[in-house]
Amino acid sequence: MTELYFIDVVGAWIGIFLTLCILSFLYKDNPFYKFAEHLFVGVSIGYLVSQQYYNVMRPKLVDELAAGFGGGAWTHWLALVPLVLFLAMVVKTVSRKFAWVGRYPLAFVVALFAGLQINAVAQAELGAQIKRAMKDIDTKQVDLQTASVARLTPLPGFTPAIAEKVVAARDAGAFVPTAEGVQALPSLTDAERGIVADNRGTVKGLDAQTGKGRYWFGIVSNILLLLGTLTSLLYFYFSLATRAWSARSRGSACGS
């Protein structure tokens, strides 16, 4: 075991002491908890000021302006823009009379974030989610006679190694294309056979999802998923709750 420096041993005990101070709040509020809480807040403030300065403000503001003063490319002078905006934020904090200058950096940041969010959520949360919600409800079973490794891997009880062995056995013509046939494959190790055996099942397991017909549990689940999504959308957009329903609910579902 690596030996610790003495100061690190002291530090470990300090950590233990502060942990117990905070846990003491479970008994009741007390001076030890308050001390630990205020120390934590204070240290956090100093910590984040240092991190923000050296990781962001120093390279992107101080070093850029220093490079500009040092005769670098004109683009370094663009750092004057965030400098001016930052100073406007400082003025807002320290002066009530000139607090209005703080509106410029706020307007800049809030508008930029708003602009970024518009396209981001439209694509990721509207587009992609609507596309998924409109996916075909009909789910066919996976045909073990023709499916690729990539198609076989997500099946319950399959790993990429098992999928490759099934495809190899299939190509060699020595494979019965059923879940039973997979479990009986001679090339599987005992552990792999165990994984397959663990995931057999006629409702949701390997037996249900493989074959030439339909995967009924999947179809039912997809119908429920679509109905659930539509119902929730109708609830949010058209407030389908009736007065009687609201009266029955009476406040939050789990309120005291």
Binding site: Q52, V56, Q117, A120
Partner: peptide, 12 residues
Amino acid sequence: LGFREGKAAVIS
């Protein structure tokens, strides 16, 4: 690479 502040903007 280190740390950069900025929430969604830095990821963008």
